[in-house]
Design a protein around this nucleic acid. Structure first.
Length: 289
DNA sequence: AAGCGACCCAACCGCACACAT
DNA sequence: AATGTGTGCGGTTGGGTCGCT
């Protein structure tokens, strides 16, 4: 919401020479107008579209509303474990190229991924008292959180029945294409490959067997949407509402299946780490925990 | 019940680029 | 070549919601 603009000309309106443009949250009527117009005339030429559809909005606003909220293929709701892993991986390759990252998460918008990164990932960087772009934090993601995420995915997939598992083997190509290029991060043999293709790919982990994690994921990956939702308690509504089960996954989920050094106060840093992780972070950040 | 703070996310802005005139 | 228009992108903001005290 643009409070600055709104305050200049009454609630939700801003004066121009020719007309009053509405800002702020969209109403159901506006949504309906936009959907109706696009369903008949198609999208594009957003400025003239806004005018033709009878919307007192900027073309930009209409475009954003359509892309981030109204278009039929937009997915809303919890970011799945697989999506979170992908986001971490792709961000390690491309940085804040949100739209590029979003291309690999069908139905997800760059805005949603950006918000996820800022609210979840950057929060943990803040807890670690390090910059989200620092080598230390990237190493933590790459060698600690991402493998833990994969463990979580594996744990979830092993609980499914054999029917869904066999079905998954028929359509692993897309996720494989997305994940495999990044496996070079985890092997000492492919240093040159990683360095040549990625600007951030020059760091090499002493962990050389983490590829197994990914192979496990790929073997069990099931791109079926309902499958993910059923197994991760993600409730996604076709009409755009969504339910958050509150676990927030994120890095917090890595805690499962491990012994904890935490003090039991919810989402605090201690609860995110087991003993092994703890020593890793001590080394990385010289924590006094 | 009320107050407060943290978190989430929809929507905005400025800028850059592509294309048309 | 210069200018205008449309589009896309990344960064930022602030209202709503939720949980805690």
């Amino acid at each position: 919401m643009d409070v600055k603009a709104r305050s200049s000309s009454g609630p939700n309106m801003v004066s121009t020479e020719e007309e009053d443009l509405k800002r702020g949250p969209w109403t159901i009527e506006e949504d309906f107008k936009l959907i109706n117009y696009i369903s008949i005339h198609g999208k594009g030429r957003w400025n003239s579209l806004a005018h033709s559809a009878g919307l007192k909005r900027t073309g930009k606003s209409c475009r954003l509303r359509w892309l981030n909220y109204l278009r039929p293929d937009v997915r809303r709701g919890n970011i799945t474990l697989e999506e979170q892993l992908l986001i971490l991986q792709l961000h390690s390759r491309w940085g804040n190229r949100w739209s590029k990252i979003a291309q690999y998460l069908p139905g997800r918008t760059d805005n949603e991924i950006k918000n996820y990164w800022r609210t979840r990932v950057q929060k943990h960087a803040k807890q670690l008292k390090c910059d989200v772009n620092s080598k230390e934090f990237k190493d933590t993601m790459r060698y600690l959180w991402m493998p833990r995420l994969v463990e979580r995915i594996q744990a979830a997939t092993t609980t499914t029945d054999t029917a869904s598992a066999s079905a998954a083997t028929t359509s692993n190509a897309s996720i494989e294409q997305m994940l495999l290029p990044n496996l070079s991060y985890y092997t000492l043999d492919n240093v040159s490959t990683a360095a040549s293709s990625d600007s951030i790919g020059t760091q090499v982990s002493p962990i050389s067997d983490s590829t197994d994690y990914y192979n496990g994921v790929l073997a069990n990956y099931n791109p079926n949407q309902d499958y993910f939702q059923a197994n991760h308690e993600s409730l996604i509504s076709p009409i755009g509402n969504y339910c958050n089960n509150g676990d927030g996954m994120d890095f917090g989920l890595i805690e499962l299946n491990h012994h904890w050094v935490g003090d039991g106060d919810g989402d605090g840093l201690h609860n995110l780490l087991n003993a092994e992780d703890f020593f890793f972070l001590q080394h990385q950040f010289n924590f006094n925990m």
